[in-house]
């Protein structure tokens, strides 16, 4: 018995199994590195790059990638593509990440409350979410953005509202399956208060599908945000997010495809990266995929 008292320090892999599980997924690690790089460039945009993203240069329009001084070329007004992509990322990432995080927190709260309380509380919350859910995602975002003044704040608010029912439904469904588990009854039999059970037993078991789902939504929301900008309901010219850059470039697609393709590729890469990140997080959040 006494020999068992002295537990040897456990290896790093066991103590930090979440990190270890994530590290095993090379796609997720690569995705995280890519997102960190792009995010870092966006945050540090004012400090890096030699060009003003809004400064037109009519002498150097449609420079192809690799042109001297402009590694990714210039657009139809001769603005540096690299600078515009970096600055565009500030808006696109903000619009992809912030509303998703906000909507996840609100949707998670509402969904868990609905699934745990059931009865009339459930009915009220879910019927309101159903009404929001009944509208097509982009249409609802347009409607909300339309009644507010255009801008980044409006984009964030409208996308948040659009996302809440998606997260809320998932959270409620996950909660409903968790509350029927025997361990909830066991927790009640051990004298756990409803609040303690909610926070220590329901929430941790509902959280991981929500985090994974939210991560994949971020990529989609960059696209939705771009759509709003394209319709003039988001950021206003000359500020451009990646979606607006794609939209601007389409009229010169044949003459200078890189003006459209480059932001398109960045949107694709970031969306994919968020998806891979979500897969990696799922493994990292589920204790069962840790060590055996």
């Amino acid at each position: 018995m006494s020999a068992a008292q002295i537990a040897p320090p456990r290896p790093f892999r066991q103590r930090h199994w979440r990190l270890a599980a994530f590290g095993r997924d090379w796609a997720a690690v690569a995705a995280a590195l890519l997102l960190l790089t792009i995010g870092g460039m966006a945050v540090l945009a004012p400090l890096i790059g030699a060009y003003d993203p809004y400064e037109a240069n009519n002498l150097l329009r449609f420079a192809p990638p690799g042109a001297p001084g402009h590694s990714l070329g210039t657009d139809q007004q001769g603005r540096d593509m690299l600078a515009r992509l970096v600055w565009g990322g500030r808006v696109s990432l903000l619009v992809g990440v912030v509303p998703t995080v906000l909507a996840s927190i609100i949707g998670l709260g509402l969904g868990i409350l609905a699934g745990y309380a059931r009865g009339i509380v459930d009915q009220i919350i879910m019927r309101v979410l159903d009404v929001l859910f009944a509208f097509p995602m982009v249409l609802l975002a347009i409607a909300v953005a339309g009644v507010l003044t255009p801008g980044v704040g409006t984009e964030i608010v409208s996308i948040t509202i659009v996302l809440i029912p998606y997260v809320g439904r998932l959270a409620r469904t996950a909660t409903l399956s968790v509350v029927t588990m025997p361990y909830i009854e066991a927790a009640r039999a051990a004298g756990g208060s409803p609040l303690a059970i909610l926070l220590r037993y329901v929430l941790p078991n509902v959280l991981s599908p929500i985090v994974v789902y939210a991560t994949t939504l971020m990529g989609l929301m960059i696209v939705v945000g771009s759509g709003l900008s394209f319709l003039g309901l988001g950021v206003q010219p000359p500020v451009a997010d990646w979606g607006a850059m794609v939209a601007d470039g389409r009229v010169v697609l044949r003459r200078a495809p890189h003006v459209t393709v480059l932001p398109g590729v960045v949107i694709l890469a970031v969306s994919l990266a968020f998806n891979f990140l979500g897969d990696g997080l799922r493994d990292a959040l589920d204790p069962r995929t840790g060590r055996r």
Partner: peptide
């Protein structure tokens, strides 16, 4: 409880 497999919180 009866079922030790599901009576513990997996998280």
């Amino acid at each position: 409880f009866q079922d030790p497999l599901t009576s513990l919180n997996p998280a």
